[in-house]
Design a protein around this nucleic acid. Sequence first.
DNA 1: GCAAGGTC
Length: 624
Amino acid sequence: MARKILCVAEKPAIARAVATHMSGGSFQTHAIRGNQYVKNYEFDFNFGDPWGHCSVTMTSVIGHLTGLDFERQYKGWQSCPPSVLFEAPVNEDVDKDKLPIAENIRNQARYSKALFIWTDCDREGEHIGSEVRNQAKSGNARIEVKRAKFSNTERAHVLRAAREPVDLDEYQANAVSARIELDLRIGAAFTRLQTLQLQAVAAVLKEKVISYGSCQFPTLGFVVDRYLRVQNFKPETFWGIKVMLQREGKKVNFLWKRVHLFDRAVVTMMLERCLAAKEAKVTKVAQKPKSKWRPLPLTTVDLQMMGSRYLRIDSQTIMKVAESLYTKGFISYPRTETDQFDKAIDLKKLVEKQFPDTEWGQYARDLIDGNFRTPRSGRHNDKAHPPIHPVSWVSSSSLNANEKKVYEFVTRRFLACCSDDAKGQSTDIEILYGDETFHANGLLVLERNYLDVYVYDKWESSQQLPKFEYGEKFVPTEANIFEGKTTAPNYLTEPELIGLMDANGIGTDATMAEHISKVKEREYVVVNKRGSGRTSVEELIPTRLGVALVEGYDNVVAGLPNSISLSKPFLRKEMELRMLEVCAGTKTKSEVVQQSLDMYREVFIHTQRRIEMLKAACRKYLVD
DNA sequence: GCAAGGTC
C-alpha cells in the first residue's frame, strides 16, 4: 500500500485550492463529523524523493485550534486580586468549537507516515502549525513533521512547495506564544482592575466592562490625542504677499516662497521693498515632463483606507464584503500586506478575464493590445498572500450594492496597476521681486493612461501660463498683502486612524478594523457625521469616558521616570520588538514574557498606588 | 464579564 501523507492548511479555502493543484483536479471529498466547513480531500500525489508516490489526505483547521486561559480558580473576577493574573497558572486548551477539527487531525495522523503543514507563511501561521503538530503527534507520536513553504496558490508554486518542504520555525511559533500569554495576562489584569475600581465611581459605569487591551488603548489614545488638539487649538493670524500679472488675457498668480509669516510689520516692510524695486525679474523658466504614478498593488490596509475615503464604507464592513467576494471566488485573499506581484502570476490572463465588463472591458482590451505595463513593486511582502486582485469576472447584476462597489474598486485598482503612469508637462516660473522670490506653476495633462480606469485619483490640467522668457523683467499688475488665520485640525477619521495604527504597529491588517469597533462598543469613542450628502465625513470623537481614561492614565504616570502611558503605542511597540528577537533566536520565549510582564507590572503597580487619579479623572468627566 | 490573533 502506498504511504499516506496528511496535509493540513490554515483554512478550508486553501485546503481546497492546494488539493485541486496537487491532484490535478480529481480528488474525493469527505465531510468530517462535527464541523460543516472543514473537509478532507483525498488523492494521490508524487512527492519525489524521499516520499515518492503517496496517498494524500488534505484537510484544514480554521485558524488557531487552541486558546489560552487561566486555571479555573482564577476565572472569577473576585477570585483573586487582579495583580495575581501576572503569575496565575494558565492552560492551553483546544477551543470547544474546534474539538471535532482536532479530533479529525489526530485520527488522520494515526495512519500517516508524515504530516505536511500548509498554514500561511507568517508568524501566526507558524504557531497554528505547531498546534496542528501537537494534535498529530498525540494521534501518532512517530509521525514526521514537515512544512510547505508557499506564498500564493498559483499551481506551479504550490507543486514546488509540496516537493521541497522545510521545517516548522519554532522561533516564530514561540514568539506568537509569548504574544498570546502577554495579551491575556495584561489584558485581564488591567481590565479587572479598572472595571472593579471605576464601576463605583459613576452611575453610568455601574454595569459596564471597562476593558484594557494593548491595542485598544493606543487606538483610543490616537482619537483622544487629536480631539484634544482640536479643543486646545488657538487660531493665529498670518500675513503673506501675493503678486499678480495680467498677460495675454490671462491672470497669473505668483505665490510667495515664504508662504506666510506671523508678523504683519515684517511682511509690510518686505512688500514695500518689492514695490520699491518696481520690476520683477524672471529667474527660472522650467518645463519638464511630469508624471503621476499609477497606484501600488492593493494591500488590506490600503483597501480599508481607500474604502473609507472613496467608497464610504467603514473598514469593518469593507472586510466583510471583501471576505464574501473572496469566498465566492471573485477576488483573491483580502488579508495581505504584500504590495508586489510575484513574477509567477500571469497578470495578463487576469486582465483578459475582465473583457466582458461593460464599464472597463474595453480598457482591459486596450491593455492587452499593447498598453499593458508590469505593475510597480512596493516594499512590503508578507510571503503569504499576493496583493488583492480580481481572480474572475462577475456581472455587477449578481452582486449587492456594497459587493459591487468593492469588486469594482479592486478591479479598477488592479487594471490601474497594469497601466502606464499618467503623463503631463509642468511649467515652473520663478521670479525675484525686490528681495523676495515668488513662483507660479502650470500643469498640462498629456496622457491620462491609468486615470481613465482609476476614477478615484484626480489629476487635472491647471490654467495654462502665458509665455515667459528667462531673464525678462516685468512690472506686476498687482502686489499686496493678504491676511489669513490658521485653522484647527479636524477630528480623526477612520482612514487616518488606520494609517496611524499601521505606522505604530498597533494590530495587524486583519484586526485593525476590529480594534476600532471594539473602542466604539466599549463606548470610548463615538462616530460623528460632519456635513451632509456626498461631502460628509465621519469623524471619531472620544466619549467623556474615553477622555477620562486617557487623562487618568496619563496622570498616573506623569512625573515618573521613564513614564510611559498606557494610552500611547510605545509599550506595545516594545513588546513587538521583543517578539522579533524571539523570531531571530536571540531571546527565548520565557525571557521575553518575563521582561514584558515586568514592564507592564510596573505600570500596574503605579496604577494601583495612584488609582485615585484614575477615579478623579472619571469623576471629573462623568459625574455632573 | 477580561486580550489579540487566526478564520466561518
